[in-house]
Every structure is written in C-alpha cells, then in structure tokens.
Nucleic acid binder design. Structure first.
Length: 160
DNA sequence: GCCAACGTTGGC
DNA sequence: GCCAACGTTGGC
C-alpha cells in the first residue's frame, strides 16, 4: 500500500491547528465539508494513517503550520442532520447520508510555518494544488515528496 | 476591500 | 441540459 499524503485548509479563526492540539486525544471530526470533490477524497481515498499537512487560510501570512494524520475510517458527518448546525443539510437523509468525513489527529506543530509565499517561490513546491491561482478546494492530495520537503524546510530553518 | 475563480442554484 | 446569477473562498 503506497503512502498517501494530503493537505487540508482551515481558517484559524474558525478552527486552528492549536485547536486541534487542544482537542481531546488531539483528534476531531473534520466536519462541515460541503464540497463534493473534498467529500469524495474523504469517503473514497483518505485512510487511517495518511499524512496531512494542516494549512491556515485567510491568515497573514497563510501557510502550512502543522502535521496531522487521518485517524478514522469515513463515516457520515453528524452535522448534516443537526438542524441547529450551520452545516445542516435538509436534503440529506439518515438512511442515505450525503456527507462523509474522517477524523483528523494532530501529530505535531511545525517547527516554523511554511508560508504560501515560500511554497510559490520554491521550484518544486510551486506545483502544489494549494499554490494554484484560484485554488479553493479545502482538501487536496499532495505528492508525499512535497509533504516531506515542506517538513524539511520547516526543520532546516528552525535550526538556523 | 477588491477581485478572480469557481461551485451551486434555478429559470427556462 | 444550458447558462446566467449568485454566493463563497481566499490571496493580495
């Protein structure tokens, strides 16, 4: 089974990597995703143990701040049935759930943030989906060599 | 705050 | 099924 790697975006104002570190067992259901492509990744391709870069969007600067991992098999997103939730989906039925999710667990915070600017200016990393103009997908597959490189850049800089 | 990108909705 | 209008994302 080949290693699989991913990147997830989150606005730190709604849910930051620090929030994930502070969650019970450093784990949280990655709920509220309401995009079919992103759902399909969670439902069909993300599996326990996959590595995940945690990216802060809408931050100044935006960038990768943490390493996480997939911590569950896919299951129905409970918020779709919760009328009080902003993610409530009246068109989804419990016997035929529309939205699936996986749990995410924090592995560790990066030694230093790897910013979007750095990603874009790096000859290899600039091909990452997150660096594409107009890229809005909140969950994207990442070449594991790119994930490794992001971690390496973060480590290297932190040691001066 | 601006605006490009792009997914979704709804009229036809 | 087409497509214009609209809403959201997210970098800058």
């Amino acid at each position: 089974m080949p290693r699989r790697c991913w990147l997830v975006k989150s606005e730190p104002g709604s849910f930051s990597f620090a929030d994930l570190l502070a969650a019970p067992a450093r784990t949280t259901p990655w709920d509220g995703v309401r995009n079919y492509q992103a759902r399909n990744f969670m439902r069909d391709e993300m599996r326990v143990g996959d590595a995940v870069l945690f990216y802060h969007s809408g931050a100044t600067p935006p960038g990768v701040v943490g390493l996480a991992e997939v911590a569950s098999e896919p299951y129905p997103d409970p918020t779709q049935f919760d009328e009080g939730s902003r993610y409530f989906d009246p068109k989804s039925r419990p016997d035929e759930p529309r939205w699936q999710l996986i749990d995410l667990r924090a592995v560790r915070e990066l030694a230093s943030m790897v910013t979007m600017g750095e990603i874009k200016s790096h000859p290899e990393l600039r091909t990452m989906e997150v660096a594409r103009r107009g890229s809005r997908l909140s969950i994207t597959p990442v070449d594991c060599a790119h994930l490794d490189l992001v971690l390496e850049i973060s480590e290297r800089r932190s040691h001066g």
